[in-house]
């Protein structure tokens, strides 16, 4: 009696067990390579917040995002205390030389939770950006853009819509890829 009924129930859970195992292991395998630090931003495809902030090393000069409408804006959050910002500094200098020349692409730096003195020292040491930086001493603008770590870079298209975002230091390669994403959006 026992041996007659047993195979039926056993077959039922055999399949469940194998199915669950395959599903789980496939998921782990798929999940292995990815970078858990990257959180995709829901702001991509949305209009960028139109901020107006004080320009670095000035007392009351402003940087307004609206001034750059019609241009692609590359907005880079950086800080003098941020280690990875040193890594991407060279990339930014190169890229701004290459893309900023024809006036179609405007670069903006956002100096995050820093003081002017330290920021100026940093630029002196690492090389001046050929574009203006605004200051965000409390990091409020960063929250507005859903920033959670340094550095992060936003790519805003001519219509003022956020087209792409780089989390962590830029490389020449990732910069090209993001610029392509901006162009693809049109």
């Amino acid at each position: 009696m026992t041996t007659e009924t047993a195979p039926k129930t056993i077959r039922w859970w055999h399949f469940t067990l194998i199915f669950v195992m395959i599903l789980m292991f496939a998921m782990f395998a798929a999940g292995l390579g990815r970078d858990t630090k990257i959180i995709p931003s829901p702001l991509i495809g949305k209009p960028a917040y139109e901020f107006s902030i004080r320009k670095l090393s000035t007392t009351d000069e402003k940087i307004n995002l609206t001034d750059y409408k019609g241009k692609i804006v590359v907005m880079n959050f950086w800080a003098s205390w941020c280690v990875s910002c040193r890594e991407e500094h060279e990339v930014l200098l190169e890229a701004s030389k290459k893309y900023g020349a024809d006036g179609k692409v405007q670069f903006i730096g956002i100096n995050h939770k820093d003081n002017d003195r330290a920021a100026e020292d940093f630029l002196k040491r690492m090389g001046q950006f050929p574009y203006p930086s605004g200051v965000d001493p409390q990091g409020r603008l960063a929250l507005e853009f859903g920033v959670y770590g340094m550095p992060e870079t936003f790519f805003i298209n001519e219509k003022g819509v956020i087209a792409a975002k780089q989390i962590g230091p830029l490389t020449a390669k990732s910069f090209e890829a993001k610029m392509k994403a901006v162009e693809a959006m049109q």
Partner: peptide
């Protein structure tokens, strides 16, 4: 393996993760 993020910050390494996963699969 670092497939999950956690407060307990362990150095994660996907190569090691892949090995433990293989081991886990073999044992299972």
């Amino acid at each position: 393996s670092g497939v999950l993020t956690s407060v307990h910050s362990f150095a994660a390494d996907p190569g090691r993760g892949a090995y433990i996963l293989m081991f886990l699969i073999v044992v299972s």
